[in-house]
């Protein structure tokens, strides 16, 4: 496919999802050759342009792993062992390194978890955003500066920030600059991994608002990862709930909140009385998630679940539609018993 064909597809409005993840399974090798970390198992979801899916779940449940898999930017120990990532109709898991480099940052981009370290401490912001523009030849050389200043203004930063070094910026400013860098090539899909952690509440709200505004302007699909439930509720159309590497429930944000079908979701969101109010953190459920090097055969949540029966520990429940709605999926044998 030539460059111009890619460009055409990019601007074509379509109801087809820009991203369709099917049965994504990602493992990490460990020092012990016999064991792998099964960090993501059989994860499926779709995102359309202008649409946002939020991924929530406890720390270590595989959210970042999914994000990095979409971008094919896993660390060397990590690899996608099964499933497909269809982006704009093509399966990215089959791409060679050279091909994927054309997609990365240019069409799929990411705000990395820990954006406080997104910038090299000895290089200016300008230099680092410019690299992305130059590598993907998005704007001619003599217009790059103008473009960088424009981007900074879009994220409410002074254009002069371009000539500053990272240590001269506050946490909130760095986060904004990282967002500016992520959208510099006008991607079709933006993955935002914990875009608001490490920021104070007021700045969090502003950054979220900004992401939504940018999405409106550029019409990119968005995958937002967070353990901040209020943040996720605010920005997401759909929500995928992850537990120990599995996606255990997926539906519209409203359904997930009003009518959870998985006990883990219920516990998670049960603690929020009003989605507009600051929530409790995810980590409030007693017990710990299983070791992903050796997860149980059945439902991975079983030993922390009030509804669990023998069936649950014997067999992994299918991730299937609930409530006569094909749009609301969950992996639980006891969905009917789940209540908020």
């Amino acid at each position: 496919m030539t460059e111009s064909e890619l460009m055409n597809q990019r601007s074509a409005p379509s109801d087809e999802p820009i991203l369709s993840v099917e049965g994504l399974t990602t493992h990490y090798e460990t020092d012990d050759v016999d064991s792998v970390v099964q960090a993501a198992e059989n994860v499926s979801f779709t995102v359309s342009r202008g649409q946002t899916i939020g991924l929530v779940g406890e720390s270590g449940c595989g959210k970042s792993t999914v994000g990095l898999s979409l971008l094919r930017a896993l660390p060397p120990q990590g690899s996608i062992v099964d499933g497909s990532v269809y982006f704009d109709g093509q399966d990215l898991t089959t791409f060679k390194k050279k091909e994927i480099k054309k997609i990365q940052w240019n069409r799929i981009s990411m705000i990395y978890q820990g954006a406080q370290n997104a910038f090299n401490p000895v290089k200016t912001i300008d230099t680092q955003i410019r690299e992305a523009l130059a590598k993907h030849d998005v704007v001619p050389k003599n217009q790059r500066r103008e473009r960088i200043e424009e981007l900074l203004q879009k994220v409410d930063l002074d254009p002069g920030v371009a000539d500053r070094y990272p240590h001269e910026l506050s946490g909130g400013m760095k986060q904004r600059a990282a967002i500016a860098m992520a959208i510099s090539c006008e991607p079709d899909l933006l993955i935002a991994d914990e875009p608001t952690t490490a920021l104070d509440v007021v700045v969090q709200a502003k950054v979220l608002r900004m992401l939504l505004d940018l999405q409106e302007e550029f019409n990119f699909g968005m995958v937002v990862i967070s353990h901040n439930l209020a943040a996720i509720m605010k920005v997401s159309d759909d929500i995928g709930v992850m537990y120990a590497g599995n996606m255990v429930e997926r539906s519209s944000a409203e359904n997930i909140f009003e009518d959870p079908q998985h006990p883990y979701t219920a516990k998670l969101f049960g603690s929020i009385i009003d989605p507009q109010r600051p929530p409790k953190q995810v980590e409030n459920i007693p017990g710990v998630p299983p070791d992903l090097r050796n997860p149980p055969d059945g439902c991975r949540f079983a030993d922390r679940c009030d509804l669990a029966t023998e069936e649950c520990s014997a067999q992994m429940p299918a991730f299937e539609p609930k409530n006569e709605s094909t749009e609301h999926l969950a992996a639980c044998f006891h969905s009917e018993e789940v209540s908020r």
Binding site: A73, K101, W105, M110, Y112, N120, P121, E131, H136, M181
Partner: peptide
Amino acid sequence: ENYITIAQTKGLSDREVLFRHAVPPAVL
């Protein structure tokens, strides 16, 4: 560091990542 991974995904080659992003802060 995050900025090394980011440099890689931004499209820089391994050599560019090493010499432009990793070596300068490391020689200090």
